Simulated scan of single mutants.
Amino acid sequence: MQIDISIPDQTLRLLDATGQLRAQYPVSTALNGPGELKDSGCTPRGQHVVRARIGEGAEVGTVFRGRRPTGEIWSPALAAAHPQRDWILTRILWLSGCERGINRLGAVDSMQRYIYIHGTPDSEPMGVAQSHGCIRMRNADVIDLFEQVPVGTVVHIHA
């Protein structure tokens, strides 16, 4: 399996070993566009791998902070109580860059930037760049993807 993420198209495609399309999902990448620098709020480009899978078996809408469940389940009332939160929900695929000086090590390290593919409230639009750098997905879609990809899955992000 491999994952192909198109920033211009705001899509994530899951491909099998032969390159055949297994699934396609709408996503939301960074409002600030593509970029690799730490603290840029941009989505990093290039080749990555899934370094960690977090949240297996968690309830839909489980809220994560620091890659740990908070004990909360997202709801409109919770969102209203915390309007500034960048919601990381349901599942996390933590990405690690593979290209030294582009998305790995130093000021461009995707893993140290905490770049994830993760769930977001279903009320958030997909197909529109609005994240703080991560790749956001609908909760049902991130669960579907999560169940199909192991640690080590190659992820290509391109603009």
Results as ranks from 00 to 15, higher is better:
114 Y>S: 06
76 P>Y: 00
90 T>L: 06
143 I>N: 08
12 L>T: 03
28 S>A: 14
43 T>F: 02
33 G>K: 04
44 P>N: 03
29 T>Y: 00
97 G>M: 03
8 P>M: 01
13 R>F: 07
114 Y>W: 11
121 P>Y: 07
44 P>F: 08
24 Q>W: 04
14 L>I: 01
116 Y>G: 08
58 A>G: 03
83 P>G: 10
44 P>K: 02
32 N>S: 14
136 R>C: 03
30 A>W: 03
15 L>Q: 13
83 P>M: 03
91 R>I: 07
109 D>Q: 01
49 V>A: 12
26 P>F: 11
76 P>H: 00
34 P>I: 13
28 S>E: 05
40 S>F: 13
32 N>T: 02
44 P>E: 06
55 G>A: 04
71 G>R: 05
94 W>A: 14
149 V>D: 03
35 G>L: 05
14 L>H: 09
7 I>C: 11
5 I>E: 06
110 S>I: 01
148 Q>A: 09
75 S>I: 05
55 G>L: 03
132 H>C: 02
84 Q>A: 12
137 M>R: 10
95 L>A: 02
147 E>I: 01
75 S>E: 10
57 G>R: 13
67 R>K: 12
28 S>D: 04
33 G>D: 04
128 V>M: 12
106 G>K: 09
109 D>K: 07
16 D>L: 01
13 R>I: 13
75 S>K: 04
38 K>T: 09
